[in-house]
Design a protein around this nucleic acid. Structure first.
Lengths: 150, 150
DNA sequence: CCAATCCTTACCTCATAGGTCGGAATTATA
DNA sequence: TATAATTCCGACCTATGAGGTAAGGATTGG
């Protein structure tokens, strides 16, 4: 019952974008260094996130990624489903085809309840919540720098 | 976020024992046939369940397995933890060693909440509940067969 | 004694996780 | 316009673990 590293890295990276939301494009190089994740692996992960519509990208110099919408409108469930597939503890609950033994299956109810709990937990937490407090601090620091420079 | 087949097969098999609770030893051969699981794979699974104290065994002819305690005192969580290891979506929540980056880690809270949800769900369902209603029916059928044969 | 059953160790095979590699396409800026 | 910084892409690699099999020993009821 473990997440893969894609899900873990993915959420960490999305938190970084959440903190820097509104600051334009963030290059993966930055996230890779900060979070100590291989750049090329991150690229793979972000390809998925982009196709899922959670982030938007800009190529070329000064390019990078930014969240496609406000952090409070992106849930952990969004990220996990994108990188780990459907939230389902057993195959027969992953949508798609139904199990033919549904009726006799005594264990189905247990897995179904587990699934509901997991969904509720993951869909009930947003990036905005995880990053709460952080953006302001960051931004203050940044403004200070700007001021002292000019 | 999937369970392995060990967990799934294990719970199904435990349900069979739950239904037949009080009927003495049940040989794995029976469960293997009924649930369409390889006998040798089931043996592996039951070795773990026995060591964890969830079932008791008797060797030799008329041997087999039975639940170590009443089905209502065995939770799905007991079975899953035995066969799948600690219920933890990420390594750093699986007990043992603490993560050194706990404080800065923004994602930890999300995984922690997920973990709690999963635990609550799994520990809140007992074998007795999953098997409710079944034992009586089974037993009636069995008695009928005996009567009609003799 | 023998058939049924659990018990144990060892082994096998394949899919997947968890990446790496090399290069092409795009863009800001000097 | 050259160059450096970036995203984008497909192919590839490797170790690990899932999901079993195999062969035989130990124990027990009839």
């Amino acid at each position: 019952m473990r997440l893969s590293t894609r899900g873990q890295y993915g959420l960490r990276a999305m938190c970084v974008l959440g903190i820097k939301y509104g600051e334009g494009n963030i290059p993966l190089r930055l996230i890779a260094d900060q979070e100590n994740i291989s750049l090329q692996y991150l690229e793979q992960i972000f390809r998925q996130l982009r196709r899922a519509g959670l982030v938007e990208s800009a190529r070329g110099a000064k390019g990078g990624y930014h969240l496609a919408r406000d952090p409070v409108d992106i849930t952990v469930g969004d990220v996990v489903r994108t990188l780990e597939g459907p939230i389902a503890p057993v195959e027969c609950l992953s949508g798609g085809e139904e199990c033919s033994r549904q009726d006799e299956c005594l264990t189905r109810e247990a897995w179904y309840r587990l699934q509901q709990s997991m969904k509720e937990a993951l869909d009930g937490i947003t990036l905005g919540y995880l990053c709460r407090g952080k953006p302001a601090d960051q931004r203050r620091d940044k403004e200070k720098k700007h001021e002292s420079r000019r």
